[in-house]
Design a protein around this nucleic acid. Structure first.
Lengths: 119, 119
DNA sequence: GTAAACCTTGACACCGGTGTCAGGGCCAGC
DNA sequence: GCTGGCCCTGACACCGGTGTCAAGGTTTAC
């Protein structure tokens, strides 16, 4: 299939696919006319990338998953590199949540005080 | 005081102060030489801005607080506009935390599964 | 009188993924 | 053979606050 079809089936844009390619995450055979040519396995790769991006991964962090899929594994998450990224991301997420909760608590206090004073 | 001193006392940079000024949050008298000249009330404004930015407010969201202080109130948070921003920010924060928690839970599940499969 | 430290404005860079446009080639259907 | 739709590459814009540089004027301390 060509880039437009791949984009549509993967729920993204041709622009983004070219971007992923420029960053070495996917690659494409080229037809005689220079058009990119993809198959079903490429669709799997892109879907893996998209689902990770959707939950807040940076593009670069999807690389181990993509490599893992390319290596012939059924899912992109069973390789040590992917698991390490999972762990790292989970820790990052926990830190982020903690920080936000701290800010929220502080904000709640300040709001309560402001209301009291404005009362 | 001049911009360098204000920046230091407020814990920021001259660059940032000029940026706040360009966006209408603070203003400065000018000396005969063209240098910006500030007083203690400006320091209060900038400290208000900084503390709000530090907890994740956008610069634009600090405006009601600055206006509130300028209007002669003891704190920037007692005015209706400021309280509205507080509420909005709190709701935003709660939404953000919920989303991150959902992602975290999903990530935990996927990590557990990946580890199982990787054996 | 001079060097260092400060100030001025204006401008570019960053980050990261995407939209969008320009200018051009390719192809299918009519 | 023409039109519309797809594709190509390259490039600029965005967001938001800050760093940093250039090229110049001012003040301060020695």
């Amino acid at each position: 299939m060509r880039i437009g079809e791949l984009a549509e089936r993967a729920g993204t844009s041709a622009r983004s696919l070219r971007y992923y390619e420029a960053h070495g995450l996917i690659e494409a055979r080229r037809g005689a006319n220079g058009y990119r040519e993809y198959d079903e396995s490429d669709l799997r790769l892109v879907r893996e990338i998209r689902s990770l991006l959707d939950i807040g991964f940076a593009l670069e962090e999807t690389r181990p998953f993509v490599d893992c899929l390319r290596a012939g594994n059924d899912t992109g998450s069973v390789c040590p590199g992917s698991i390490a990224v999972y762990r790292h991301k989970l820790a990052e997420l926990n830190g982020c949540i903690s920080r936000l909760e701290a800010v929220r608590d502080r904000l709640r206090g300040e709001l309560a005080e402001a209301i009291t004073q404005a009362g």
